Computed example of a mutant assay.
Amino acid sequence: MITTELKEHVLARWPEKRLVDVRIGLGYTAVRLDDDSVGVAYTFHREAASGCSVFKGKRPLAGRTTTEILDYLESSDPLEAAVGLACANALVNQPQPEHCEGDLLHFLSVGFLDRVGMVGFFGPLVAPLKKRSRELLIFERDVTRADGLLPAAEAFARLPQCDVAVITSTSLMLGQLDRLLEAASGCREVALVGASTPLAPEVFRPYQVTLLSGITVLDGPSVLQVVSEGGGMEFFGDSVRKVNVRV
């Protein structure tokens, strides 16, 4: 699975560090390492266990090594997977010369004859993609978020009919990315999108992914505070930089 390959890639290329702070917010999960690097991943809080203690994993998280916590990338528990992915992103998503700053739409190749399949509802992208493409199909777990959304399960059957695929990287934590990329293997352009995206092109190149669109954290303390207060991308502001990497 891609999560296993991501874990092995990170373990092989980044030295072991220790976690000094972990925030599991309602919108995002954030991990800070002992070199002050911070990574984030989406929190699937609705899928969390019931009760007053929703995280059932290792405690305390602070003080543990990245080697231990990266095992959570392969967890079927969504909160554990979020901690594992945030840890990976704290290591991987550091500024690099090949990173291109800016919005995804500046780098995504979409033409007026293209059918675009979007897995996960990215509100700010909808109107521009509808304008630039022949058709936009949006597959979403919560179809009540907007009009015209299709059930997420339909993506596996309909992505093969698309020319461009825009896929939420949160699918890594749900164990669905392998199947989604298989369904999108015939697309000319395949982008993994969102703050949860690990900017590791070597991992995704064999799967015909062509573009990674994620973030690097510039102001760790500010991001940690936003996460603790239940905020997300709209409140990260200048504390993060949107970056894109051609695969």
Rank of each mutant, 00 (worst) to 15 (best):
T4A: 12
K7C: 13
H9A: 14
L11M: 08
L11Y: 09
A12Y: 14
R13I: 06
R13K: 15
P15M: 09
P15L: 11
E16S: 13
K17I: 08
V20L: 13
R23Y: 02
I24S: 02
I24A: 11
G25C: 05
L33W: 00
L33R: 02
V40C: 12
A41S: 09
Y42K: 14
T43K: 00
H45E: 14
R46K: 10
G51T: 11
C52Q: 14
S53I: 15
F55K: 00
G57R: 08
G57E: 04
R59M: 03
G63I: 11
R64A: 14
T66C: 08
I69R: 06
L70S: 09
L70Y: 10
S75K: 06
D77L: 07
L79E: 12
E80L: 07
V83N: 11
G84V: 03
G84N: 06
L85Q: 05
L85V: 08
A86D: 07
A88S: 13
A88Y: 12
N89V: 13
A90R: 02
L91Y: 03
L91A: 10
E98C: 02
E98M: 04
H99G: 08
H99D: 09
G102W: 06
G102Y: 03
L104S: 01
F107Q: 01
F107R: 01
S109G: 01
V110E: 00
F112V: 09
L113M: 11
D114M: 12
D114S: 06
V116N: 07
M118F: 01
G120S: 02
F122P: 05
F122N: 04
V126P: 02
P128W: 05
L129I: 10
L129E: 08
K130T: 01
L136A: 08
L136P: 06
L136I: 07
L137K: 07
I138D: 09
E140H: 11
D142P: 12
A146W: 14
P151M: 01
A153C: 08
E154S: 15
E154Y: 10
Q161S: 09
C162M: 15
A165E: 07
A165W: 11
I167C: 13
R179F: 13
L180I: 07
A183N: 10
C187L: 05
E189R: 04
A191K: 06
A191D: 05
L192A: 02
V193N: 08
S196G: 00
S196N: 09
L199V: 08
L199S: 14
P201V: 08
P201K: 05
T210P: 06
L212W: 05
P221T: 13
P221L: 11
P221R: 09
V226S: 03
V227W: 02
G230L: 11
G231P: 03
M233E: 04
D238T: 15
V240L: 03
V240D: 00
R241Y: 01
R241C: 07
V245K: 02
V245F: 07
R246G: 00
R246K: 05
V247W: 01
V247S: 11
